[in-house]
Design a protein around this nucleic acid. Structure first.
Lengths: 206, 206
DNA sequence: CTGCCACATGGCAGTCACTGCCATTTCACC
DNA sequence: GGTGAAATGGCAGTGACTGCCATGTGGCAG
């Protein structure tokens, strides 16, 4: 990597970190792009070349975690059982949480106090889910069911969201591993109800 | 209902419909609030009193559908099995789709062409899911598990999203009922994998 | 070492979503 | 018909974001 790219990578990180600190200190809405740019010692125009949106300055942190999770999934050979490959994803998330709990809590406090930011977060999760569904479908090599892939990806994304949310709501005082175990056991025990008509007609026809 | 409220309700509807038509005709981004306000024969300031956001002008249609689904759930007595009550939700969604397929397709074309809108949609789904989780928890009357409620609500929301997405992706040419049946059968058959460690350690300890 | 070129930077003007404030209009009720 | 509350709409202002262009800087060839 050239000196040039390295420097850009550094400023990129610096901008996000600076913005993060400002958001924590004085809130997201009350922090202008100009302030961030000034604090990060760049012009606003340059800032926008690194992060195309104010939202992106916050979302990027979650994005990094999700990217890592996706990498963990892709690192599994295609012939490993799907359940195992998905576990690698959850494992990655668990690792990300434990790696820097304080930062994650601060991050989610920002999200919590700024309703407008939730949209960006939700969208990120949505995109990630779409990508996971695609990768699952690729593993099955065309033979797979689109519906199956979509539901599996969605289910996995849910577990992640529920884990992170439960952990953050408890202020990070609960062991992540415990939450993960509880959630997975709940899913594995088939205790989650499926919407079914009262008479239980599904599956009887056709 | 007074004459006043009736008129406001009419303009409210008219504004959204006008905006919808403009979005379809010339795209979301290329339509300004001023244009919408002019076409709907109101001042921009008034328009913002009806819809606090440009996004809201589109999202409101989905919101109406989800509200109906929530009402269908709440209409079920608390002593009906949860699976049955959740089926009422899916049933409501199915009904909403069949009620006006063309409009739904046009709506999702707007969403599709405007990446920035997905965020608002994702956020709406997120809020709805939160609310459903709360209601599920209320049904269990405090005795319920928070994790259980969250996962069940998320799973239900997934089914809805996957159904609608599958239907729209196929251009509405597939029977909604078929998709619903396929998705529910897939879930009911327990074919959706749960992320598990390779050795299957979950549940052995404790 | 030096000049060259591609590219990163930053300033400036402009657009547009959105908001607070205030004058005006409208209508339900007396 | 008058009156008060509520709806309306205009206006000025803020801040996110963009296109354009001038400037500066680092990597590379000579």
């Amino acid at each position: 990597m050239g000196l040039r790219e390295a420097k850009m990578e550094r400023t990129r990180r610096f901008i996000a970190d600076t913005a993060f600190d400002l958001f924590v200190a004085q809130g997201y809405d009350d922090t202008t792009i100009e302030q961030i740019a000034a604090a990060a010692e760049v012009g606003t125009r340059t800032l926008y070349r690194y992060y195309s949106t104010k939202e992106a300055l916050v979302v990027t942190f979650v994005e990094n975690g999700l990217d890592a999770a996706m990498d963990a999934f892709l690192a599994q050979p295609d012939d490993t059982p799907l359940a195992g490959a998905l576990h690698a994803v959850i494992d990655s998330v668990e690792h990300t949480i434990s790696a820097n709990p304080a930062r994650l809590l601060a991050l989610y406090e920002i999200f919590d106090k700024t309703t407008g930011l939730r949209a960006g977060l939700a969208d990120l999760c949505w995109s990630w889910r779409q990508r996971l569904a695609q990768e699952i479908l690729r593993r099955e090599d065309g033979a797979g069911d689109v519906l199956f892939a979509a539901l599996t990806a969605a289910s996995t994304m849910n577990v992640i969201e529920v884990i992170v949310q439960t952990w953050t709501v408890n202020g990070g005082h609960v062991d992540v591993a415990d939450i993960v175990r509880a959630a997975l056991e709940l899913l594995h025990s088939k205790a989650i109800p499926v919407p079914l008509p009262p008479a239980g007609l599904v599956g009887s026809a056709s």
